[in-house]
Amino acid sequence: MKSLTFIFVSLLSGVIAGVILAGVNYFVAEPFIDQAIGIEVDNSIASGEVVDFDELSSYRIWQKEGTFAAGAFLGLTYGAILGIVYVISRKYLPSSDDRKKALILAAIMCLSLYVVPFIKYPANPPAVGDPETIGLRDSLYTSYQLASGLIALGVSILMYKLRRIGYIKYVIPVIYLGLVASIYAIFPANPDEITAPMDLVNAFRAVTFGTMVMFYLVLGTLFGIMWNKFKPHETARIAA
């Protein structure tokens, strides 16, 4: 195993996917964020707060420009996770092509770490969320992601161990759906009431869902291409 190449492939694919995500969001998600912040400002004025528009403007510049660096950090996170899981599970993943293997794993990560948590705790734009409950909401979201990830991992291991049983491919999805439904029922709902217009909230959710799924697919594709090119799993090529 070429360790540095392995780390390089994981992080670089993540950073590129994250910056692409930020670039796409800049055009498709930012208009909704601007709209939601406008509602926040209107609410603050209506409640008698003094709003410093110069400060607000400088914050928005900072937030919008920061989104590219933040996208890179997000990419580092999921690129690193993809790399760790890939290097452990590579020989168990279907297909002999690293590009397909990586895409399959990225799709599983997308399902378990993003789509399943999104169903319970969908993304919200600014103007939704009580600052007093942020600790609880962070804990719930993280625990849910962790639980969903562990379910996917456990079911994958079970499927591999029982692969010789012919009907297992029909049983596994039922077990998976049962476990996902269980955590959906057990975890408490988001404690915050949505006071922003639902049209805005739903549009924001639809757009960001699309860009996040795109992010995972781009990450898996880039990781697979780079792995296939640099082959970190090969220790050496020697003359036969």
Binding site: N25, A29, A70, G71, L74, P126, G129, I134
Partner: peptide, 19 residues
């Protein structure tokens, strides 16, 4: 909360609770 504000937009868009 400079760091929070710096990551604010991607935090919302990636589905994390923000504020």
């Amino acid at each position: 909360m400079w760091l929070h504000e710096f990551t604010h937009d991607i935090r919302h868009a990636a589905g994390f609770p923000c504020h």
